[in-house]
Design a protein around this nucleic acid. Structure first.
Length: 216
DNA sequence: TTGTGTTTTACGACCTCC
DNA sequence: GGAGGTCGTAAAACACAA
């Protein structure tokens, strides 16, 4: 470890243990006046203190400093001048650091809000998709039932037509056949469909396909 | 140990408000 | 015009897998 590294190490320790001391120490070592609002960004080599060119070192705020800043941020996301100065002196930080911390904190808060908003919208969208699927399959089922009902109506219509023809004086020869084909109420059996509804059907005549609800 | 991805601190440019 | 805001980004600090 050379002298420079030893100094670095010591300053790091000081910055962690005594942030206020560190803050007051660093500008002196850097030979800097109070930082201007628009500080020139230090080059990487200057930032690590190479060649004694500069003592700027980005240091992480201590847990306690961050905790206090968080409490203050919870209180109000905006930072008035008075509060900034008060926080800075309480935490042993440069007011500029406090301002920057609040700027960055607001940015993080905004990002998180956008993320949360995105998650909410995504969940809502997924629910809508699931609902849509369910409704589509319901529509399909209803269409099938409609198709079956239409087929039955068609079949009944054909049979009614056949009965009328057989009852006419011209075709009296088919009367017996027609009477055999038309079931009496007592010929129906009762069964239960998948939904638990009672259905009437005639095993002989309807061949198990044609049905009607018992309570229609 | 080192490469790499993420988080935190800091800055410059630009905008808004008083 | 100055103070303080956002936005985008650089760079240090940190976490962690390989």
């Amino acid at each position: 470890m050379n002298n420079q590294n030893v100094d670095d190490h010591n300053l790091l320790l000081i910055s962690q243990l005594y942030p206020d001391v560190y803050t007051s120490l660093v500008p002196q070592q850097a030979g800097e006046a109070k930082p201007a609002r628009r500080r020139k960004r230090k080059s990487k080599s200057a930032a690590v203190g190479e060649g004694g060119n500069g003592w700027f070192r980005k240091r992480k705020l201590s847990d306690e400093q961050v905790r206090m800043l968080e409490i203050s941020f919870e209180d109000d996301h905006k930072l008035e001048s008075e509060r900034k100065d008060r926080l800075a002196s309480e935490l042993g930080l440069d007011p500029r650091q406090v301002a920057v911390w609040f700027q960055n904190r607001r940015a993080r808060w905004k990002n998180k809000r956008v993320e949360d908003e995105y998650t909410k919208l995504k969940n809502a969208y997924e629910n809508v998709v699931v609902d849509r699927c369910r409704l589509d399959s319901e529509v399909l089922q209803l269409k099938e039932q409609l198709y079956e009902a239409e087929r039955e109506i068609q079949s009944l219509a054909q049979r009614v037509e056949g009965t009328l023809i057989s009852n006419s004086p011209i075709s009296s020869s088919v009367t017996v056949e027609a009477n055999q084909a038309t079931p009496f109420f007592g010929d129906y059996d009762i069964c239960v469909d998948g939904d638990g509804d009672n259905l009437l059907y005639s095993p002989d005549y309807f061949d198990g396909l044609e049905w009607m609800s018992q309570f229609m």
